[in-house]
Design a protein around this nucleic acid. Structure first.
Length: 603
RNA sequence: GGAUCGGUAGUUCAGUUGGUUAGAAUGCUGCCCUGUCACGGCAGAGGUCGCGAGUUCGAGUCUCGUCCGGUCCGCCA
């Protein structure tokens, strides 16, 4: 036994007890012949007091920060109490101690407000994890997975593992690939998700499956994206969309209750994809604040009469004109509106400009488009946008997709600026009725918006069966009947982040075949890639559907952070590198030879 | 594939119009200190200014290239 109690446990009631602690030296404060040492472990910090004799021993052993000590002494009340820490009323009068292991000076301070930069902390991740902040993040992650398992277990779900070495599939993200030594010139792929396996488990009759599982995607990264990430992956049989929404609404509520103590009584709001795009310009709307997008003109159709017959070329020629009304921002200075203009002009947003109307408190209007619109027209703008006196109306015009994306970004940006995106508030909703297909310009074809196993809405099945997927008029692909087909798919959105998504699957062989056809996947290819699933569907596949949640992101949002890296014990950087172990790395020629591989030129 | 910001002491950063010995804070080392908890005081060590080339009498500073890191777009559900 190295210790009788941890560093976070002792209180004034323990006065007089003899205890042995073990932990890391957080700080040393020396006063001549008396020394204070803060000893740290996972549970907290306890102050040790070394008298003259023990202080000499500390010095002779060169004890410094991050040394591992075992110390025995008696608990006594402090004369100067520290109200900031739970153990602040007591200290340990040291009788004896032992250095269990020395430490070199760490490259950054192991404190809440560390002096270490991002990359240094990544390289020494095991030291960074000693800090409270990251420790608490991992504890939060554990409480999320525990709440998940509790809930799903109590709802009759069974956790089943699926393989990591599987087969490469053409659709969706790039696969990570693993060469097979025993099957030379052949490769496994790491799963992008256990999608097909969970469907097979449904065929097998495990009608409620889940798995907290690593998924792998070889695509470029972001702060909120890792090459390997964790999903809470679920699938159910004999269910319709409504059953799934109910069940997993329950899951997220249960997580919020267990982890944050937040009791959401109301059912989650539901919003169609079309409404989300119309009102927020986004399929994952942040509903913590209003500031809805106003559609002044869409697809060259004018919705605001005041726009008719204007001499303003930009608005006349624009396919789409969208606006938001920013509450209380009418007093923005020229400099501030110029800043906003620069912001929308950045290449990432890419708008040509920004028009604004200041609706002053006194009812007067001042705008950047005064030349083209009389005051009575401007007031029509304000009315249309639902603006109140004191609002600043921001207007973007251009091509539909770009403009909608830009207004959405601008809305979020203004929400941030106005402090309307409080990360201690959690607003959830379901987004439903997604299009089944998305147009891919590059190959002039349809791709599955969700994945190829997603079922169309029953009323759209006929459209899918009786129309050719071929797109003859590229310019007006939206007019193609396939563009209107809705999917039995749903996303759960929290604070403007998609935290989960899923669908009712196709369980009929014929419909699945039709789907592959629509996606221009040949019979041969479908058979080669998904033959096992098609085969399985011949043997009585139950109607089924499911959902997967992004665990890392759920944790980050609950933890009030932008970055999922803070909630992963050993994350990778922007280039997919593990800075600590320095992976990926070259392998030896011998290994290559065993795998029958030769290295080619680097692209 | 593209845009953009950064790389100077162990660490976080400053460094003026290109100018002579590159600074601060913190950390580290030594000495002093019996009530600190961001302890305090004194002293000290610590630099290939990412790397390479160029312009110049002279480059941390300007130019080009390159490597590394951050953020974003494309990509990704």
């Amino acid at each position: 036994m190295y210790r009788t109690i941890t560093c976070g446990a002792l209180r004034i009631a323990d006065k007089g007890k003899t205890v042995t602690l073990a932990g890391w030296v957080q700080t040393i404060r020396k006063f001549g012949s008396i020394t204070f040492v803060d000893l740290r472990d996972r549970y907290g910090i306890t102050q040790l007091v070394f008298d003259e004799k023990e202080t000499q021993k500390l010095e002779s052993e060169n004890v410094g920060r991050e040394f591992v000590l075992q110390a025995t002494g008696s608990v006594r009340e402090r004369s100067n109490k520290n109200k900031n820490i739970p153990t602040g009323e007591i200290e340990i009068e040291i009788h004896s101690f032992k250095v269990l292991n020395p430490s070199v000076t760490p490259p950054f301070t192991i404190q809440d407000d560390t002096d270490g930069g991002e990359d240094l902390r990544m390289k020494y991740r095991y030291l960074d994890l000693r800090r409270n902040v990251l420790r608490k993040n991992l504890e939060l992650r554990y409480s999320v997975t525990r709440a998940t398992r509790n809930y799903l277990h109590s709802h009759n779900f069974i956790e089943i593992e699926t393989p990591y070495l599987i087969k490469s599939t053409p659709e969706g993200a790039r696969d990570f690939v693993v060469p097979s030594r025993m099957n030379a010139h052949e490769f496994y792929a790491l799963p992008q998700s256990p999608q097909t396996f969970k469907q097979l488990l449904m065929v097998s009759g495990f009608d409620r499956y889940y798995q907290i599982v690593k998924c792998f995607r070889d695509e470029d990264l972001r702060a909120d994206r890792q090459p390997e990430f964790t999903q809470i992956d679920c699938e159910m049989s004999f269910v319709e969309q409504e059953d799934i929404l109910q069940t997993f609404e329950g899951l997220i509520k249960s997580i919020l209750k267990d982890v944050k103590g937040i009791d959401l009584k109301e059912p989650l709001q539901r919003m169609s994809f079309a409404d989300a795009m119309w009102n927020y310009g986004n399929d994952k709307p942040d509903i913590r604040f209003e500031m809805l997008v106003k559609n002044l003109k869409t697809e060259s159709e004018i919705h605001l009469d005041a726009l008719k017959g204007s001499s303003f070329g930009v608005f006349e020629q624009a396919e789409t004109i969208l606006a938001i009304s920013v509450p209380g921002a009418a007093d923005y200075s020229r400099k501030q509106t110029d800043e906003l203009t620069d912001w929308v002009r950045r290449p990432q947003i890419g708008m040509a400009g920004l028009a604004y109307i200041k609706y002053h408190e006194d009812g007067s209007l001042k705008s950047s488009i005064d030349k083209f619109f009389s005051p009575d027209k401007l007031i029509q703008f304000a009315d249309f946008c639902g603006s109140k006196k004191g609002d600043l109306i921001l207007i973007l015009a251009g091509k539909e997709e770009k403009t909608r994306k830009a207004i959405s970004e601008l809305r979020l940006f203004m929400g941030d600026r106005l402090g309307l995106r409080d990360n201690s508030i959690f607003k959830l909703l379901w987004v439903t009725d997604f299009p089944l297909f998305e147009y891919e310009e590059e190959n002039n074809r349809w791709v599955a918006r969700h994945h190829p196993f997603t079922s169309p809405k029953p009323e759209d099945i006929d459209t899918m069966i009786h129309n050719s997927p071929v797109i003859t008029d590229k310019e007006h692909y939206l007019k193609h009947p396939f563009a209107a087909i809705k999917a039995n798919a749903y996303d759960m959105v929290m604070n403007g982040n998609e935290i989960g998504g899923g669908s009712i699957r196709i369980h009929q062989k014929d419909l699945q075949k039709k789907m592959f056809e629509a996606l221009a996947i040949s019979d041969e290819e479908a058979n080669e890639k998904f033959g096992f699933l098609m085969n399985a569907f011949q043997y009585g596949a139950p109607p089924h559907g499911g959902i997967a949640f992004g665990l890392d992101r759920v944790c980050a949002i609950l933890g009030g952070s932008e970055s999922i890296r803070d909630f992963i014990a050993f994350p990778k950087n922007n280039n997919g590198r593990d800075m600590m172990i320095d992976a990926p790395s070259p392998i030896e020629d011998k290994q290559l030879k065993e795998l029958s591989l030769a290295l080619g030129e680097i692209n």
